[in-house]
Each structure stands twice: as structure tokens, then as C-alpha cells.
């Protein structure tokens, strides 16, 4: 079952590449035929990825070490790709602007590609991860990351499609509003992720906040997006600036997710146990 799950993950990675190309063609050729193909393939990817995650969960139970598949970088990357696909598909259903997919879906593909370079074997949970808060913490954080990822994709689209030239056009205003809406979703979920993480830390390490690099970077990300939300109340911060801001914010997200683990040591480095 683990093997089937890994096969699906491999397949979905290449299917997401194909989906990304189809969305790019939709944008480049302004063709709805490509758009429909991209959407259908995207839904197939999302469904297959959901199945792969569930299979992996079941497989871990069959191995007698059952736990939710959120315990290491490999599993989190697969889940990250899933959350991006989910949030993007919701936006596609609401707006039918498929060009967004040309910017959002490649993120899911890259996450999956990174996952393929890692060891996919299912391992038992370390004592520190044995907590009911694992699921709530990981789901909220990664849905939040995905919200920010999609807002960055919208920001990139805003800049790449030259909306800044006519920021009062309906398309530009819609994108601007979508960037804001996805940031709000991401912000609420990131807050929930930090709160669940604090509750967990309080029962595992005896402190709800210890300025561990991962915690601190999640706070930095929170502060950056908090200032983005406040910038809405200042004149001249719509449009191009918000688009760029969403990219800066997502850079913080990426550092919180990858940079901290790779470059800074701390309590979240589950590769090195004491």
C-alpha cells in the first residue's frame, strides 16, 4: 500500500508538470480548450493526491506505527502540494480565471518534485511528535502556507500580466481583491497554526514560546502579513505594491518552511534527536 501511494505520488508529480504547462498554454494562447484540459487534469491530480495521502495513512496503521502522514519533510511537501491544489481549485471555481493556474500550479509541482528527492519510507513517530496537536498544527499551518502561496501566485500574475499599467481596470481590481482575500485566509490559518503550535509546545517543552528559530520565523511571517493587511488602510498601497508585498511575504513563508530547517538549528529539526 505504501508502494502504491509512492507510485501515485510519482505519477502526480509529472501530471502536475503537464497541468502547469496546460495552464501556461491557456494563458499564452488565450484558449479555453487548454483551460478545460488543465482544469480536468488538475482535479485528477488533486483526487489522486488525496488518495495517496489516505493510502499512506492506512499503510502506517497496517505497519503498526499508525500516524497521520504529517511527520517529516517528505510528507509535509506532499501535503503542501495538496493544500495549494485545494486553495487554487476553490479560487478557480469562484472566478474562472484560469491564468492564475499558470502561476499557482507550478508551486504544487515544485513541492512534489522536491519530495521526490527525499526518502519516502514511512517511519514511526518520535516521542515529541506523539500529540493530538500534530494534525491540527500541520493542517492549519500548511493551509495557511498554501493561502499565501496562491496569493503570491496572484501577485506574480498581477505583475506579469501588466495590471499595474491600468490598476483601475476590473481585472486589476479583482486580482488586487483576490490577493487580499487569500492573504486573509492565509493569515487566519497561520495564526491558528501558531496558536496550535504554542499549545503543543506548552505541553511538550513546558513553554508556549521559546524564540526557537522556527517559531520566530513564523512570527516574522505573521508580522509581515499583519503589516500588509494594515497597508490596505494607507493610501497608495493597492495594486502593484500589494502584489510585490505578497511575493515578499511568501519568501518569508518559504524561509520559515525550508530555510529554518536547512540553515538554522532548533527544536523543529526532527532529523537530529537528542
Amino acid at each position: 500500500m505504501e508502494a502504491i501511494s509512492n507510485q501515485i505520488i510519482l505519477g502526480v508529480t509529472f501530471a502536475l508538470l503537464a497541468t502547469s504547462v496546460l495552464y501556461l498554454c491557456t494563458w499564452a494562447f488565450k484558449s479555453q480548450a487548454f483551460g478545460w484540459a488543465a482544469s480536468i487534469l488538475n482535479w485528477v491530480c488533486f483526487g489522486a493526491l488525496t488518495a495517496a495521502i489516505i493510502l499512506r495513512w492506512v499503510a502506517s496503521h497496517q505497519m503498526g506505527i499508525g500516524h497521520a502522514p504529517f511527520s517529516n519533510l517528505f510528507e509535509s511537501l506532499v501535503f503542501f502540494a495538496w493544500t495549494i491544489a485545494l486553495i487554487y481549485l476553490i479560487i478557480e471555481m469562484a472566478t474562472w480565471i484560469r491564468t492564475i493556474g499558470a502561476f499557482a500550479v507550478p508551486l504544487a509541482f515544485l513541492a512534489m518534485l522536491y519530495a521526490l528527492t527525499l526518502d519516502p519510507s514511512i517511519k514511526p513517530l518520535l516521542p515529541a511528535l506523539k500529540s493530538n496537536w500534530l494534525i491540527a498544527h500541520v493542517i492549519t499551518c500548511f493551509l495557511g502556507y498554501a493561502g499565501f502561496g496562491v496569493s503570491a501566485a496572484l501577485g506574480a500574475m498581477y505583475l506579469a500580466t501588466g495590471q499595474a499599467k491600468d490598476p483601475a481596470s476590473p481585472r486589476a481590481l479583482l486580482l488586487d481583491n483576490l490577493i487580499y482575500q487569500t492573504v486573509v485566509v492565509g493569515f487566519i490559518l497561520l495564526t491558528a497554526g501558531i496558536v496550535t503550535g504554542s499549545i503543543w509546545a506548552n505541553s511538550a517543552w513546558g513553554t508556549y514560546w521559546s524564540w526557537d528559530p522556527k517559531e520566530t520565523w513564523s512570527l516574522i511571517t505573521w508580522l509581515v502579513y499583519a503589516s500588509l493587511l494594515h497597508s490596505r488602510f494607507m493610501r497608495g498601497w493597492q495594486g502593484k505594491r500589494i502584489a510585490m508585498f505578497s511575493l515578499v511575504g511568501f519568501a518569508c513563508v518559504l524561509f520559515t518552511y525550508f530555510g529554518v530547517n536547512l540553515l538554522l538549528s532548533g527544536l523543529h529539526s526532527y532529523a537530529t534527536g537528542k
Partner: peptide
């Protein structure tokens, strides 16, 4: 003013970044 909030939030972010780069 919201401008001050905006500035202080970003200032805290920048200082916090420094705190993760300098060993504490």
C-alpha cells in the same frame, strides 16, 4: 496612525530576523 503600526510591525520583523541569524 496606521503608518506607525505598519512601521513597528515591519521593524519587529526585521529585528526578529536578526535574532535568528545572531546566536542567542
Amino acid at each position: 496612525s496606521v503608518k506607525l503600526s505598519f512601521f513597528l510591525l515591519l521593524l519587529l520583523a526585521v529585528i526578529s530576523i536578526a535574532g535568528t541569524l545572531i546566536p542567542q
